[in-house]
Simulated assay, not measured.
Amino acid sequence: MNTQQTSGCALRLAIACSLLLAAPWAQAAASSYSGKAVRLGKGTAHTVVRTDDAGQVASIGIVLSKRALQGLPKPGAGPTAYWLEMPARGPRTVFNHVVVNWEAAGHPPPKVYDVPHFDFHFYLGSKAEQRRVRFQSEAESADPAQQPPAELLPAGYIVPPGTAVPQMGVHAINPAGQEFNGQPFTATFIYGYHRQRLFFLEPMVTLSFLQSRPSFEAAIPQPARFDKPGSYPLAYRVQHNPANDSVEIVLMQK
């Protein structure tokens, strides 16, 4: 092999090595992965997982399109539950699926959550597990068999009687929340359990607040531990996207 051929091989080898070294960085660039869109109102809803430059999950959210808040079912008319798949591509998270529950007339307790709003349930369990959740009475949330251990509850949260809902679980609320202290309910954060284990995380947001083109963020109170290994959100955000007039409900990992 002559000198020219040797230098040519060396050049090609150097280029190949630089491409190999660059590949991981290209793969680790911040990305966004969307789940399949589901009809909601006159628009759609879908899940989205966003990663940072290191390829780690930065946020998990729900995108409501421009017309998703229009033409929603009236009280007593369905559908009221919209099942969303997590993105088929991208990194896995602790969540298996999402259910958006539209509460046209709100729900108990009266004068607190009895206004039109959405319950955004991020489930850790599978769809099959969710469908198997059964209660004889809503008061079963007070049963010791349903009360989670203290270390799985964020500080200040309680699971009161009357919060057991079939195909959901029991709901833990924060009595220090603004809606329990003389201020109107706009957005709040619920922890959900079944048989003493964490089963879902749930931002609840009023229709009027979503329609107001909001820019809102709050920390998510953290329990002492989680019983399912994984990375959990530290804050949640409700934000309007002026680029396409959508609204996002986002669980932020960082």
Rank of each mutant, 00 (worst) to 15 (best):
C17D: 06
H121N: 05
G71S: 04
K228I: 15
V133K: 00
S126Y: 01
T93A: 12
L201K: 00
D52F: 03
G162K: 05
S126K: 03
N241D: 15
I60C: 08
P242Q: 05
I220W: 00
V100S: 08
Q130H: 03
S141V: 11
Q70Y: 08
M86A: 10
Q253K: 01
K66A: 14
L207E: 12
V205M: 09
S246Q: 07
Q130M: 14
V57Q: 01
T51F: 02
D119K: 02
Q211A: 12
T6A: 15
E151M: 13
G182L: 13
F226T: 12
A142S: 13
R67D: 15
Q147T: 11
G192M: 08
V57L: 08
A128Y: 00
I249Y: 02
L207T: 07
Q178H: 13
Q183D: 10
V250S: 06
Q5W: 07
R50M: 09
P75Q: 13
P73I: 13
A219C: 01
F120G: 02
A77C: 04
G41D: 08
I249W: 06
A164C: 07
S32D: 09
T93K: 06
M86C: 05
G90S: 10
W25E: 02
H121I: 11
A128V: 09
W25I: 06
A26Q: 12
Q239M: 08
A22Q: 04
A142L: 12
L40N: 04
L13H: 02
Y82D: 11
S65C: 04
M204L: 11
A224G: 06
V94F: 05
P116T: 13
A29R: 04
L19P: 00
I173M: 09
A235F: 02
A14K: 09
L20I: 14
I190F: 09
I158H: 00
M252G: 04
Q239N: 04
E202C: 13
A243M: 08
S59L: 10
Q196S: 08
Q147N: 05
W102R: 04
T188M: 15
M204K: 06
